[in-house]
Amino acid sequence: MTTSMEKPRQVVRKFLARPQHEGVGAVVRRSIGRFELRYFDPFLVLDEFSVSAPAGFPDHPHRGFETVTYMLEGAVTHEDFEGHRGTIKAGDVQWMTAGRGIVHSEMPAGPGTSRGLQLWVNLSSHNKMIEPGYQEIQSKDIASTTSDGVTVRVIAGQSMGARSPVRTRTPTMYLDFTVRPHAAARQPVCATWNAFAYVLEGEGVFGGGGGGDKAGAHHLLLLGQGDGVEVWNRSDKPLRFLLIAGEPIGEPVAQLGPFVMNTEEEIDMTINDFEFSINGFEKAKHWKSQALVALGLE
């Protein structure tokens, strides 16, 4: 890739996402949303998850943000209290807007291990109470292109002439890069956005000027100010990493688990709405997912 930039972003923070238990029997490597990094505006959580049946993420609510689920291996079946049901497989993506309220279940489909990533993208105050919705894209329909030893899959935004059809209420770029040995990736990023990289496989050198920080699998790298990102693969194995950036919202964040609002009063209201099945949670009162019933957990 020959894209040039005036000020490549440097790594300002790097750490390893270590495994922890989440849901029912699932294992996640959480990099954003943990003690060391509670929030990276507009991103609330980044989990790399690994789950095998009967473990999973049974019925749970959300309000005030969006979840982006990107499958790497296996498959996950999703159900919600609106009657929406579907299965996303390796390479597929689901961009879910929780908005004013959703209760759903995410459980592995089929034998073996299902592995993927889930990103939580915050919504601005004027979007927090919008109606829930979904954008689902099969792997074959994700925009992808290859040049000079670099392949990119465009989950959101645009790269190397390829553009995603996903609509992002909070402006977001989500790119999946694979870099061949001894090749380099260069990607412009809006200078006012926050950006980070997450390494899935191999080892890369992140930063400008021929130097940079070396990082391997499961490392999160927060990137400083600049107009783009430069990454080198100086190893003999392929490098795969995610580059994710978003426009900061710049509003207060009040969070209680799966509820993300702007004030503690709004969190209290959300808890009340959920407990009494009102203001967006009306269907929660009598709904149970098929997965929950099958597991005998209801």
Rank of each mutant, 00 (worst) to 15 (best):
T3N: 13
R9K: 05
F15V: 02
F15N: 02
Q20A: 11
G23C: 07
R30C: 08
S31G: 13
G33S: 08
E36W: 04
L44P: 08
V45N: 00
E48G: 06
S50A: 10
A53V: 02
P54T: 04
A55Y: 03
H62S: 11
T87P: 05
D92R: 05
Q94P: 04
Q94K: 03
T97H: 01
A98V: 00
V103A: 12
M107W: 12
A109W: 07
A109I: 00
L117P: 03
L119A: 03
L123R: 00
N127A: 04
Y134E: 00
Q135F: 03
E136L: 15
I137A: 00
T145S: 12
T146W: 06
T146L: 10
V154S: 10
A156H: 07
Q158D: 13
S164Y: 10
V166Q: 02
R167K: 14
V189D: 04
C190D: 08
T192D: 14
W193E: 09
N194I: 01
E201Q: 14
E203Y: 09
G211V: 01
D227Y: 08
W232A: 12
L239S: 06
R240C: 15
R240I: 08
L242Y: 14
A245Q: 06
A245S: 13
G250Y: 05
G250R: 04
F259K: 01
T263C: 10
F281T: 02
E282L: 10
K285C: 07
H286W: 13
A291P: 01
V293D: 09
G296R: 04
E298T: 04
